[in-house]
Amino acid sequence: MYTGSITVADTPLLRYVLGRADDALVLGHRLSEWCGHGPLLEEDMALSNMALDLIGQARALYTYAGEVEAAGRDEDAYAYLRDVTSYANLLLVEQPNGDFARTIVRQLLFSAFIDPYWRALMASTDPTLAAIAAKAEKESAYHLRHASEWTVRLGDGTAESHARAQRALDELWPFTGELFTMPAGERALIDAGIAIDPETLRAPWRATVTRVVERATLTLPADGWMQRGGREGRHSEHLGHLLSDLQYLQRAFPGATW
């Protein structure tokens, strides 16, 4: 048996909510892949805890997407029954975990953006988004602190950890430009006070990342050509593999519960 994919309505608010939910779910799934594989027990728990925070945020956002679309879909439908091209997450969050340094640097680059993003979104004219943001903002603050401390520890650690952290930073940097892009339709949401303009976060994001990178004795890469496409559903091959793992059970056993 096999459950086919759903097609969701293409309205700006729904697309926006799903994009934020997809960021949280995909990054949460990536972090959950560390469960049982962490470099030390405390980190195993920390990464799993952060995965839980992110998947929780995704659940709240998918549930809200269900209200916005009003097509009778619940959180599971959006997570398990959309194909890769319907996912609107940033390319950064779908990048494979790699080594611990790569996971930490990915977490730093994303958290330094999403923490002030949620903080600003607390003033959204959309009360549900404002409430979700109020919760997520505190969780992402913990994530940012964790990633910052580890970036410093790895960068300013041994020659080996320094080299790995620098390599991770160099390889992930081309995915940071997409943090500040805005898909068509989002401008109207920003003008209505529902969403916020990511461009306004570029300077604070850069200041946070620079401060951590410098303390970690790492070198900030030069801004070259930036990858993009995730928000429009053009993903790297990694997302398809991730979804095959994430969605397998609901596709093979439709509506399975336990």
């Binding site: 925070d53 992110l54 929780g56 945020q57 659940r59 709240a60």
Partner: peptide
Amino acid sequence: TPTYSGCP
């Protein structure tokens, strides 16, 4: 009301 987003 939920406490933490991911509180199971």
